[in-house]
Nucleic acid binder design. Structure first.
Lengths: 163, 163
DNA sequence: TCTGTCAAGTCCCGTTCGGGACTATAATGC
DNA sequence: GCATTATAGTCCCGAACGGGACTTGACAGA
């Protein structure tokens, strides 16, 4: 591997940043997230013709069916026009269904169709493999601790964002 | 707060996803990263007219001066055209300087200027405040554990990507 | 029942993004 | 020395993104 003119390998510079940066774990978290999300999205885009936003919608609906678009926005921090577009595309492709709320014509409850479930089940396998191959770089104790702490932090963020 | 027709508050659905999702800590990590990065970028864009990529370049250069664009790409997973654009804009604004390598005309070493350092010092304060306000949702032990584990995982990813 | 306000979703439009082709320079092999 | 390959960086262009205006429908208050 060719090195920079500083003679120092990149991995050393990366480690230096990781270990001395002034925003601590947040930098690492963004680094890990980017390392995971970009390749996976690129793969999904090519393999399944599903964008990041579309996958997130499928993912959320696989846990709670019958959500409205704005609920998905709140749950994921995605802007509503982005979710709107994603939901429209998924509907066009037949992966989700909109059920109008008879009591409120503005509302549309989104839910996965048969083919949507089939697609999601296939995609989530790839996703899990990739996620696990990253997490397996840690030993079992650290994996458990990471899971516990990130759930705690996420829940705290949810609560914080609520008001 | 208006609730969905499912009667269930969104935060409950969010918690459910967080705790039952099949990709584990990776979902949480992406969630936390997005929760942090989006608002901060929006703020920086307005307040300092600095995009995400530009800030990342400043951030990396603040740790290791005199890097080349491709090294920043490797360190951050950003595509090279994006870094190229960011570096050009930062140069136009006078925040970084390109020093041509006399031995290799293709190479240009990037380094922060005085004004670049001044800008970065100001921005990093905001960044640290935001990061800390999120991390402080955890107790001191968990903060330490999270830092330790994410550093370990990041370093492992760096090593994995190397080959 | 009219009017003002709010809420869900869509549309418009300028910006950012990123894959891949391309340019320019250096290194390598014969 | 010349042809080939590799490397650093830029350019082009279509796709994705997101702020904010807009549309439509619901609802509260007088």
């Amino acid at each position: 591997m060719k090195q920079s003119s500083t003679v120092e390998p990149i991995s050393d510079a990366q480690k230096y940043v990781l270990e001395t940066n002034r925003i601590g774990a947040i930098w690492q978290i963004c680094f890990i997230a980017n390392n995971f999300v970009f390749p996976v999205n690129a793969f999904f885009g090519k393999e399944y013709d599903i964008s990041r936003v579309e996958f997130v919608i499928l993912f959320v609906l696989s846990h709670r069916d019958g959500l409205m678009a704005w609920e998905i926005c709140r749950m994921t921090n995605l802007p509503k026009n982005n979710v709107s577009r994603g939901a429209n595309k998924l509907e066009q492709k037949g992966h989700i269904r909109r059920t109008g709320d008879p009591k409120d014509a503005r509302r549309a409850l989104l839910s996965l169709t048969e083919t949507g479930w089939a697609l999601f089940d296939e995609m989530i396998e790839h996703y899990m493999d990739r996620a696990q191959s990253i997490l397996n770089l840690l030993d079992a104790d650290d994996q458990r601790a990471l899971d516990r702490i990130t759930i705690k932090l996420s829940n705290a963020l949810v609560a914080k964002n609520q008001d």
